[in-house]
Amino acid sequence: MPLQSPSPRNKMEARELTLRYGSKVAIRTISLAIPEHQVTALIGPSGCGKSTFLRSLNRMNDLIPGTHHTGTILLDGTSIHDRALDVVDLRRRVGMVFQKSNPFPKSIFENVAYGLRVGGLKDKAALSARVEKSLRGAALWDEVKDRLDESALGLSGGQQQRLCIARAMAVEPEVLLMDEPASALDPIATAKIEELIHELKSTYTIAIVTHNMQQAARVSDRTAFFYMGELVECGPTEQIFTNPREKRTEDYVTGKFG
């Protein structure tokens, strides 16, 4: 008998999640698991609910007035809406990187240290160590180590986005959510981010929203296709891109939509 690789644990799992903005249904009865130490890509046309779903995973949707949900989202088997789980703690465990690189108008060092400082870490040496570790983890250290005190806004777009990844990594989350992290970058910067995602997989569980199907194909282990607020199909990325089960997935990945 060959070695059967054990099927990975589900780090996060949505069960029949429905989310409304006011009376408008944004996503409808989504049940989707995010396996540990894998990259799960969420694809679909604009407005299909993939970003909304992603933002539900660390309750960023709570910030938008008028949203309410039914169904559950589990993190390590516990509901993220559980009273015992503070939303601030949730976001420390489930970090997020946004589409537009959004460094604070502070120094490179302060950007990475931000999450640690708001978390109450004051020790200078510990801060420095964590900042260096995160910047190394985001493959940015060598480019910025001599100018940590300079403004983060002086970095190139690709560097800024890696800085944002470093910033998210600094608080040592368990899950990293990425909302189109490379959509505003040139191909070389994109390749660096994608390479980074490959490396981060061993430490983190990653969910990534992308408009770029080739990117989903390149970086992810599993792909979920969203359409009009519904999860049409989720499966191994190779299967989604060579032999999807659903007609709508087929039409989307082959470019036959509207």
């Binding site: 199907m213 891109f241 999807p244 082959t254």
Partner: peptide, 9 residues
């Protein structure tokens, strides 16, 4: 064209 799915096949 980076074909996918049935096109790729």
């Amino acid at each position: 064209r980076q074909p996918a799915a049935s096109d790729l096949r």
